[in-house]
Simulated scan of single mutants.
Amino acid sequence: MAKEEYGDVKFFGSGGSPYARRVQIALKLNGVKYQHFEEDIRNKSELLLKYNPIHKKVPVLVHNDKPIAESLVILEYIDETWKTHPLLPLNPYHRALARFWSRFIDDKVLPAIQEAAWTVEVKKREKAIEEAIEGLRYLEKELNGKFFGGETIGMVDIAAAFIAFWLPLMEEAVGLKLLTHDKFPKLHKWSQEFCSHPVVRENLPPPSRLLGFFKARYASITASK
């Protein structure tokens, strides 16, 4: 690909953010060179606020000085701009399905997992666990290959990166058991395949640091109960 097709690419992210890591994985899969700006979410830079004045958060991709915010939107932009590693299928129906499942993960599955992990009130936590398991069941049924994208990593796989990498560490930190091999054999195998992919593995945060963060957060929550 010619240099002018890449243009000037900047990426604003934060090391532990699963949403920012989505973008990094997609960029790396497509061989896109970019300038990385690491953001402190407690002390956001003026550049980040300039490029994302509405949500004021990462990730933000800036291509030729044009900012794009929100991880799923950025993934689609990457898919349409760089063609080395397609993230969405060519078939319009299958593309629509990939968008649906990616949004399902963000709107239904991840909020339920977060609620199950960080809620100490018993009834609310039990309800959140039920909702998280229900969401994972739908994904288990949808997964019919090595990856959601077939034999190669696609948009749904990247959207589900939290489930593959962040969730097991969160489970260890707070004592949850959601993504087990017995309950979800296909998802469990997929998570291992996904995290062991060279590009994915190189673009995930250090697990020990993330586990420490989760343990500290849970201790703080339970101490303030």
Rank of each mutant, 00 (worst) to 15 (best):
R209D: 10
D65Y: 02
V120W: 02
F214D: 13
I163P: 11
L49N: 05
I74F: 03
R22H: 15
R42L: 14
N91E: 15
L61M: 14
K183L: 15
L187M: 14
F214I: 12
F11M: 12
K215E: 14
Q192W: 11
K177H: 13
A161F: 05
F37P: 07
I74S: 05
L88P: 09
D8H: 08
R95N: 13
G149L: 13
E151L: 06
K127R: 04
K3Y: 07
L29K: 05
F12W: 10
E121C: 01
I158V: 10
R217T: 10
L139R: 08
Y138M: 15
S102V: 01
V200F: 02
A216D: 10
A96S: 13
W82G: 12
K3T: 11
K123E: 15
I68K: 03
T119C: 15
L169A: 08
A164R: 05
I113G: 08
A98D: 11
F162D: 02
N91Y: 04
A69L: 10
V122D: 07
L27S: 00
L210Y: 00
R99E: 13
N144H: 09
K225I: 07
I129L: 07
R209S: 07
A159R: 05
E151A: 06
F147M: 14
M155C: 12
F162G: 01
E121L: 03
W190L: 06
Y138L: 15
L176R: 03
G150S: 09
G31P: 05
L211I: 08
H181K: 15
A69R: 03
L48S: 10
Q192H: 13
V32M: 08
P111A: 10
G212K: 00
L110Y: 11
Y93I: 10
E172N: 01
C195E: 07
A128I: 03
A223H: 10
K189F: 04
K124H: 07
S220I: 00
Y138F: 14
A216C: 00
N52I: 14
V200Y: 02
T81Y: 06
V120Q: 07
L49Q: 08
P205E: 06
P89N: 06
L204C: 02
G31S: 03
Q114P: 04
F213T: 04
L179E: 11
S102G: 14
A26H: 00
M1N: 06
L179M: 12
K124Y: 02
P198E: 04
E130T: 07
P185L: 06
G150M: 12
A116Q: 01
G145D: 15
V32R: 02
E171V: 03
